Simulated scan of single mutants.
Amino acid sequence: MPPSLPRPALTGLEAALTNACRLTPTPPRQLVRSLSTTPSPLQQSFPPDSPKFITIPEPPQSSEVKHPPVKGHLPTPRNIFPTRGGNLKAKAAFIKAATPLSKAEQLGLPPKSEAEAAHRKAAAIRRKNLEEGIRGLRSRKKLHQDKILARSQYKAEFNNARANAPERADEALTRSTVKQSTAKQVQVKPDPYRFNNAVMARKKTERLAAQKSEARRDALAQLYVAAQTFIVTEKQLEERVEELFKEDTFNKMGNASSNMWELSGAPISVGARQAQISGMGAGLSDPTKAATQAAVRRKLVAEELSGGKLVIDAQ
């Protein structure tokens, strides 16, 4: 038995302390000038940041030759026996038509020379190989299809058996017990008035839709009436600006106020507006709200009498 070789150290620190680790010495200068500009391996000196600066021995397993991957792809195999007419290839008529005999062989004439006899022998071998190959491929395909069908049937039967299997004993014994009376009490019974409730809900929805449609028509009519005073030209805009931004604007309103804040007061807050809309809060006793409600009532009466829509003056 040959002596075993000493195993080199695997750790970097232990390998660095051995004699195997050494700096790559700088080779001496060559007296002969090289004609090539590419440095030879003996002339290369590795910098300290190179992994080859310190020679570390490798274990025998890492020195195995790893072949590069072969790029490319295998061609798609031909379907020798297609779905339509593929079974006819395995029959004797197809093989006989694919490998016909020569006219001399059909007439039963002997070969005229040794070369012709050799050709006839090679042709017979080719006919035999073609027949055996077709029949072998057909049997292999049938065996493969039978395996796939058997596997599919086994999976279907297995899944059906698992789906229709009775309850296991451990599940039946560990399942919580529910009394029959409790099961009847906790079950949700259908509402006996569900159809009447559906009819009432439908009527309520139709009534709300009619109210929304009527409010939409009223808003459109008010917009049409208010559009008479809309500013649509630059001349109207200039006249309105001159009317509002005069020095004696507030004096003409019958008040000694000097600005809009003193005339109308501070604008309403968001909280007060929400209280007015919802009908809750301290705004119920506000006199301005009562006046607004009275103006709205007068507007509704005037609309009923005139048969048209009116717009409440913001002033």
Rank of each mutant, 00 (worst) to 15 (best):
S4H: 11
L5V: 13
R7N: 04
R7V: 09
L10T: 14
G12Q: 14
G12Y: 14
L13R: 10
T18Y: 02
T18H: 10
T18L: 03
N19G: 06
A20Q: 12
C21M: 14
R22C: 01
T26A: 14
T26N: 08
Q30S: 14
L31M: 05
V32I: 05
V32C: 03
T37H: 07
P39W: 03
S40D: 05
P41V: 00
S45C: 09
S45Q: 15
F46D: 10
F46W: 07
P47S: 04
P57Q: 13
P60R: 14
P60D: 10
E64A: 12
V65C: 03
K66D: 01
V70P: 00
K71C: 04
P75S: 11
R78L: 13
P82C: 02
T83S: 09
R84M: 09
R84H: 13
R84N: 07
A93G: 04
I95V: 10
K96Q: 12
A97Y: 00
A98V: 01
T99V: 06
T99F: 08
L101H: 12
L101D: 14
A104V: 03
A104R: 12
Q106W: 00
G108L: 01
L109H: 12
P111L: 04
K112H: 09
K112C: 08
K112L: 11
A115C: 02
R120H: 05
A123R: 15
R127H: 07
K128S: 12
L130F: 14
I134E: 01
L137I: 03
R138V: 00
S139K: 14
K141Q: 15
K142L: 08
L143V: 05
L143S: 08
H144C: 08
Q145L: 07
A150S: 10
A150I: 09
A156Y: 11
A156P: 00
E157I: 06
A161T: 13
A163H: 06
E167V: 13
A169I: 08
A169R: 14
L173K: 13
R175Q: 13
R175G: 01
T177W: 11
K179P: 01
Q180K: 15
K184C: 03
Q185F: 03
V186W: 13
V186G: 10
P190T: 11
P190D: 15
P192A: 06
Y193G: 05
R194K: 14
F195P: 00
N196P: 00
A198S: 09
R202K: 15
K204V: 03
E206V: 02
A210K: 12
Q211I: 11
R217S: 14
A219R: 09
A219I: 01
Q222D: 08
Q222N: 11
L223D: 07
Q228A: 11
I231W: 02
Q236K: 12
L237D: 08
E239V: 09
E242R: 15
L244C: 02
A256L: 10
S258K: 15
S258D: 11
N259Q: 04
W261E: 15
E262L: 02
L263T: 12
L263A: 08
R273K: 15
Q274N: 15
Q276S: 07
I277T: 07
S285N: 13
P287D: 05
T288V: 07
K289D: 07
T292C: 08
V296Q: 06
R297Q: 10
R297I: 08
R297W: 02
R298G: 01
K299C: 13
K299D: 04
L305N: 05
S306P: 00
S306D: 02
V311R: 04
V311L: 01
